[in-house]
Write a protein that binds this DNA or RNA. Structure first.
Lengths: 198, 198, 198, 198
DNA sequence: CATGAATGAGTGTTCATTCAT
DNA sequence: CATGAATGAACACTCATTCAT
C-alpha cells in the first residue's frame, strides 16, 4: 500500500512545511518536491495531482488525530471530562506542530470549494466524536436534556476553531494549551449563570 | 469621494453576484465588469486592484452591518437582550441576501493570507461590539465576573460563524433565523447546568 | 468578424513560418507569437488554442485554394483541360510558397488523429472538386464510362499528393511546375496504352 | 543478433498493438512494455530508444513484405501482371492485419520529420520494386516508351497508398482486396482512353 | 470619464530514459 | 538478463493590469 512507502509521508511532511513557510498559493509542486528531497516527477508516483497531496495531508494528520481522540475518550470519564480531553488533545496537536497549525488553520482554508468539501468530509469524523460526547452528556444528565445536538456541536467546534485560529493569527504569542480549561468551562457553563428562560 | 459615485457600489454589488455565482477563483475581473455593465478598465478607475474590490466589498457590507448593530444596541436593554439582537441581526443579514451569505461565509475565505488579515481588520469592529456587550454583561452582573473577555468573544463569534457557515454549506435548507434564539440560549447557558467547578 | 482583424492573418502567417522553420513539435506558441510580433496571450484573443491555429491555418490556405480552383474550372473547357488547370494550380500554390509547402506536405501530417480528421474535412472540398471533374469527364465521354469515381479520385489525389511530397522531401531540387503536364498525361492515359482487358 | 531473441519480436508486436489501440502519442514506452509483458527497462536492452522501436517495427514488417514481393514477381509474368500481384499483396497485407494497417497508414505518419525520413529509407526498397516493374514494362513494350519512371512510380505508390489510407479512415467498411483489380486497371489505363496528345 | 485590445509572467504534469538491485 | 522506482526537462494557457484612443 502506498502509505507504507516511506516517501509517501516524506512528501506529506514536506508539503506541510512548504505550505506553512510559503503560503498555500506559493507552495508549488516543485517547492514541495525540493523540500522532500525528491524529483518533481516522484511526487506523481505517490499522488494523483497537487490537490491529492493536500487531501492526503489532511486525511493523514486529521485522520490520525480523530482516531487518537476516539480511543482516548473510549475509556472511563464523564462527558464533561471527555470534552476537556478532546479540547486539550486538539490544542496540543496544534501547539506541538507549528507548521501544521498554520497549514490547517490558515492556509488550507484558501483551497477551492471542491477541495474544501473533501476536507469537510474528513472533518465529519471529528464532528461525530463531538456528537458522541454531547449525546452521552445528555444521557448521563450532565448536559441539558433539551440541548440541540447540532447547535451544541457547532458551538463546540466553532469555539475551538476560532480560538485556535486567533492564536495562530496572533503568531502564537500566548500559550494555547493553557486555554483548554477556560474554553472548556465556557462551553459547559456559557457566559451567564444559566438563568435564561425563554 | 469614491463612494458617492454610483458605479462604485454598482461594481461592488456586481462582485458579490459574480463571486457567489462563479466562486472566488472563477470571478475574474472581466466577469465582474461584465456583471456591472462596465468595461474592464473602468474597474480600475474606482479600485486600485482586484484585492481592493474584495476589501471594499467586505468593508461596505460588514461596515454597514456593524454600524447598524452598534446603533441598535445603543438603546435600552440588558446585555443578554443585546446579544440576542446582535445574533438576530447577523443571521437576518445573511438570510436576506443569499449571494452575500455565500460570499462572506464561503468564497471570501479562500482569499490569500494578506487579504484575510485585512478582512480581519474590518471584523475587529464587530468583535469590539461583542466585547462591549460582554463587558456590560459583567458589569451588570448578568455574566460571570471572572469571564475571560477574549475567550467569551471567541466563543460567541466562533459559534455564530460556524452556525452560519454550516447553514450555507447545507444549501440553506433550514431557517437560519429560527436558530438565533437557541444559539443565544446556548451561549448564555452553555451545554451544562453551570455546575462545573475547576 | 475575426478574420477581418489584421492580427488573425498575421498570426496564421507567422505559424506557417514558425512550423516550416522549426518543425511541428518545435513550433511552440511562444515562438509563433514572437514570429507574429505579438505577445503570447494575444494569440488566445484570436484562437481558442494551439490546435485552433493549425486548423485555421489549413482552412484559410486550403480553403482559399479550393475556392480559387472552383472558380477557375467553372468556365469553359473540357474535363481533361480542367484537370490540368487544377494540377497546375495545386503545384503552383506549393511552388510559390516554400513554407506553406513544407507545412502542408510534411509538418501538418504529424498532428494527432483528431486534428487530422478536421483537416480531412477541409480536404473534402478539394475531393469534391476532383469528383466534379471526373463526373463531367464521364458525361462528355472524355473518360471511360465505367470509371469508378472514388478510385479515380484517389488516384488523382494520391498521385498529386505523392508527387508534391516527394518534391518537398527532395528539398525542391527540381521544378514542380514542370511536372504538372506529365503528371496530367499519366493520370489521363495511365502507364500503358489502354489495351488492358480484364 | 538481436532479432534472434524472442523478446525482440515480442516487443515489436506489442508496439503494433499498443499504437493501433492507443494512437501514436498515447503509446508510451510503459504501455508497450506492459503489452509485451516485460519491464520498461527491458525495452532498452533490445532497442536504443523509442524511435528505434518504431523504425524496427517498420523495417521488420515492411522489409518482410518487400522481400516477399520481390520473390513473388521474380517468376514469370508480364509487367502488367506483376503490378497486379504487387497491389494484391500490398492490400492483402493490410487487410489481414488490422492493427498493422492502422499503424502504417495512420499512426506512424504523425512521427516527426526525422523518423519519417528514416521510414522513407525503408520504403525505398518498395519503390525500387515498383521501378523494376515499370522498366520491365517499358522494355517489353507494355508501357509507353516515354514514360517518366519517377512520375509513374509516384502515381503507382500514391494511388495505392491513398486507396489504403482512405480504406482505413473509413474504418475498413468495404473490401479492400476487391479494389486491387480496378486500381490496377486505372493505373494501366488512366482515366481516359489514351487519346491525349500534348 | 470610459473603453477593451494587448500584455507577459507563472506552473502543474507527462514520460522517455537510467541504473542500483 | 531483467526489473521498475526515480528522474527532470519542457510547454500551453490564464488573467490582472495597462494605456492609447
Amino acid at each position: 500500500m502506498k502509505k507504507s512507502k516511506p516517501k509517501y509521508m516524506q512528501i506529506i511532511d514536506a508539503a506541510v512545511i512548504a505550505i506553512a513557510e510559503n503560503g498555500y498559493h506559493q507552495a508549488q509542486v516543485s517547492k514541495i518536491a525540493k523540500q522532500a528531497g525528491v524529483a518533481d516527477g516522484t511526487i506523481y508516483l505517490y499522488f494523483k495531482n497537487k490537490e491529492d497531496i493536500l487531501i492526503s495531508l489532511f486525511e493523514e494528520k486529521m485522520g490520525n488525530f480523530i482516531e487518537k481522540i476516539d480511543q482516548m475518550i473510549a475509556g472511563k470519564g464523564t462527558a464533561t471530562e471527555k470534552l476537556l480531553m478532546m479540547i486539550e488533545a486538539h490544542f496540543s496537536m496544534l501547539y506541538e506542530d507549528h507548521h501544521l497549525a498554520i497549514v490547517t488553520q490558515l492556509e488550507l482554508r484558501q483551497s477551492n470549494k471542491d477541495l474544501r468539501l473533501r476536507i469537510n468530509n474528513v472533518l465529519k469524523g471529528y464532528l461525530q466524536v463531538i456528537d458522541k460526547i454531547i449525546l452521552e452528556g445528555i444521557e448521563t444528565g450532565e448536559f441539558s436534556p433539551d440541548l440541540d445536538v447540532r447547535l451544541a456541536r457547532q458551538m463546540i467546534f466553532g469555539t475551538i476553531d476560532e480560538t485556535a485560529t486567533s492564536w495562530v493569527m496572533n503568531e502564537e504569542k500566548y500559550n494555547l494549551l493553557a486555554l483548554a480549561s477556560p474554553v472548556h468551562r465556557l462551553l459547559i457553563n456559557g457566559c451567564g449563570f444559566g438563568r435564561l428562560v425563554e
